Simulated assay, not measured.
Amino acid sequence: MITAHTAPPVDPTDPFGHDVLEDPLPLHAALRDAGPLVHLTEYDVYALARYREVHAALVDWQAFQSGAGVGLSNFRHEEPWRPASLLLENDPPRHDAPRRVLRAVLGPGALRRLRDAWFADARELVDRVLADGDEFDAVARLAEAFPLRVFPDAVGIPREGREQLLPLGDHNFNAFGPPNDLVRKGEPRLPELSAWVASRCRRDTLSGDGIGARIWAAADRGDITAEQAPLVVRSLLLAGVDTTVHGLSATLYALATHPDQWRRLREQPHLARAAFDEAVRWESPVQTFFRTTTTDVRVGDHVVPDGRKVLLFLGAANRDPRRWEDPDSFDLSRDPSGHVGFGMGIHQCVGQHIARLEAEALLTALAGRVRSIELAAPTVRHHNNTLRAWGSIPVRVRLG
């Protein structure tokens, strides 16, 4: 046990308060400046906001476990409100088999099969949106519409009712925070939405040729159990839509507010994936996740005791000037690789390449039709305890 240490600096700010959710950057800067470890007194948890420490905690699953929950609730003492995610909220060895299955079904072969259809779907969507006029809400018409169309199709769930994925995912990510007004807002519909998604994860509901069916086939082979199969499908649906929606929203906002970068993308459309990754670094759609220490862990001159919750500020790490040059700039000439927007280590987002393909398809289609894109009216944030989310991004485009 580590004994010699000094107390870390403290910060009384509520990181889940609406003022912080509207603009987290001042808190991020204050936490980074305070030191490598900060005690957040509002919830009696510890915080890491610098890139080096966040990255180190993400890859050290033995000392910073996910199995006690990646939210504020500590599963050592509290019962989860839903079955724990087999990937996000489990550590080896329980984590290993489901992740192997998903890595296989979401691998390069799956991307090749999806690519042509998704690029065609993106062109059709962009053509339809542009046919309705030169002003529209980029969140509703593009960032939500495209993932809700192509990703559930790929998983193999029916089209009817799939818009339910957005409020369910919103509540899922809110529930990683404290039981505040954002959580209470989603609770009335939770039984209905949970039953709906569970029904869509059954073998008899899924199409026979999608990702969901391949997950069930893995259960038939014994790679995972029949009880695990619907939970793996559910994890895909709950984690793979909202995050991509807000990643696309972040990219569209960045390009609408940086006309020089939009011109660069039009001239070099192969930068579409880089634009998405730079937007994920710059905006960090997933802002925070918790870990729980499994032993006394030293961070700098301080120690986090065993069994304590640690809040990892991914968004703060992704703008840490100790790691990134001019971190507050959105710049397509930057190499954004190494950002922690998709996590890092064994719990890194297994569907990140799917998200990149969705972004590449949509941005390529848009860049092929649109000469310029700019904000047409004030934007609106959507507050979520975990996500840096958008409610509305009104844009005006010029074709050419």
Rank of each mutant, 00 (worst) to 15 (best):
M1N: 14
I2S: 03
T3H: 15
A4T: 07
A4N: 10
H5Y: 15
P8M: 06
P9D: 02
P12T: 11
P12Q: 08
P24C: 10
P26S: 10
H28F: 13
A29Q: 13
A34W: 07
A34R: 11
P36K: 03
T41D: 01
E42Y: 03
D44C: 09
V45K: 13
L48G: 03
H55Q: 13
A57E: 04
W61L: 08
G67E: 14
A68P: 01
G69Q: 06
V70K: 02
F75K: 07
H77F: 12
E79D: 14
P83L: 09
A84C: 07
L87D: 02
E89F: 09
P93M: 10
R94V: 10
A97V: 02
P98S: 00
P98C: 06
L102M: 15
R103S: 14
V105F: 05
L106A: 11
G107C: 05
R113Y: 05
A117I: 09
V126Q: 01
D134P: 08
E144S: 12
G156Q: 13
G156V: 11
P158S: 12
P158V: 13
E160A: 15
E160C: 08
L165G: 01
L166M: 12
L168F: 14
H171V: 05
F173M: 02
A175P: 00
N180Q: 13
N180H: 15
L182C: 08
L182E: 08
V183H: 02
R184H: 14
L190P: 06
A195Q: 11
R200I: 04
C201H: 05
R203Q: 13
G208P: 05
A213I: 11
W216S: 01
G222Y: 05
E227D: 15
A229T: 10
P230M: 08
P230T: 07
V232S: 06
R234K: 15
S235E: 11
S235I: 11
L236D: 00
T244K: 05
T244C: 15
V245H: 09
L248T: 01
L248H: 06
A254Q: 11
H258P: 00
Q261E: 15
W262I: 00
R264W: 06
L265N: 03
L265P: 00
R266I: 10
E267P: 03
L271M: 13
A272M: 10
F276V: 06
V280A: 03
R281G: 02
P285R: 13
T292I: 05
T295W: 08
R298M: 14
V303I: 10
D306G: 12
G307W: 09
L312K: 04
L312P: 05
A317I: 03
R322E: 15
W324F: 08
F330V: 04
H339M: 08
H339D: 11
G343M: 03
A355P: 00
E358M: 10
E358S: 07
E360N: 02
E360V: 06
A361I: 08
L362T: 12
A365K: 01
R369K: 08
R371C: 08
S372I: 01
V380G: 11
R381L: 09
H382E: 13
N384S: 15
N385L: 04
V395N: 01
R398N: 08
L399P: 06
